[in-house]
Amino acid sequence: MTPNQMIATAVLLGAFVIAAGAYGLLYCAARISDRKMIRTGGHLSYMGLCLIAFALVAFTPLHFGWKVLVAASCAIYLMIPPVTWRYLARLHREERIR
């Protein structure tokens, strides 16, 4: 790993989690406000996440195992906001019924 690759990889890893956070935030905001623009922003953030994951897998000198982990994380990040949201909504719904 060259010094330039080290910095580029670290920046991509940081951007990867930022994109995941942006996706999670916009997904929730879209669920609350039901605005198309915010929903589109959420989709774009996830697309950004996928692109960053692709760059990490294709262009960085990370070892194979870490690349698999990044790819798997990319898929898991897709599910976290909807699954968490549904879980929270169900909890609240059950609580209201009780």
């Binding site: 999670g24 997904y27 929730c28 994380s73 906001p81 968490t84 929270l88």
Partner: peptide
């Protein structure tokens, strides 16, 4: 490396929870 890479996952869940409550 593996478990550290997983550490942001629950943190994202917390963000979702915060936005849910704030909303």
């Amino acid at each position: 490396g593996f478990f550290s890479a997983l550490e942001p996952l629950p943190l994202l869940g917390m963000v979702v929870h915060a936005v849910y409550d704030a909303g």
